[in-house]
């Protein structure tokens, strides 16, 4: 069971299972007794069965368009965004869009190639929990989530850019 890092660096266990996208013609392989994250477009296809279920959330891959869930983001209990490679920066935009444009208020989770040195960027873009890549030491996460004590830009964690805070 993967350890989950929270936005303040605390560790906790978590049951959510990421259900991979099924092969063509195959059905979603939902776990029997655990909450599941399914590909966002497949959640929409099965909206009538999945809607309002506390144990079915969604995940986006880095090339997916979060726009498909606009207006419904708060109908799911959990959203995850996959970083297939840590140098693929699309997930940061997806995070900000889900939070700032579509108003998602629940837990936003970074999964995939999640490393210590990118945690603060992810947090700034709206992510609230993190599943670190298995070979990395989650106990160090707290330090990296808040490495910089000040930032220039407005983002999910900072309402005003530094130039506005300076001027006031």
């Amino acid at each position: 069971m993967p350890e989950l890092i929270t936005a303040d660096g605390a560790l906790r266990q978590d049951d959510w299972v990421v259900v991979p996208r099924p092969e063509e013609g195959e059905a979603l392989a939902l776990p029997d007794d655990k909450p599941a994250l399914v590909p966002a477009d497949l959640w929409l296809e099965n909206e009538s069965t999945f809607a309002n279920r506390a144990d079915i959330g969604v995940w986006f891959d880095s090339h997916d368009e979060p726009e498909i869930l606009a207006g419904k983001v708060n109908e799911v209990p959990l959203i995850a965004v996959n970083f297939p490679r840590f140098v693929d920066g699309r997930g940061y935009s997806i995070g900000r869009l889900l939070r700032e444009r579509f108003g998602y208020e629940g837990d936003l989770r970074a999964i995939g190639d999640v490393l210590l040195d990118q945690l603060q960027f992810m947090k700034r873009c709206g992510f609230s929990t993190f599943v670190l890549r298995a070979d990395k030491d989650a106990s160090q996460a707290a330090r990296y989530l808040d490495f910089f004590s000040q930032t220039y830009q407005a983002a999910w964690d900072t309402d005003l850019p530094l130039f506005r805070r300076r001027a006031s």
């Binding site: 940061y92 990118q118 960027f121 850019p161």
Partner: peptide
Amino acid sequence: RQWSTFHPEFAFL
């Protein structure tokens, strides 16, 4: 310069 320095969304273009 300030806006682009450590921009959280655009560090991995």
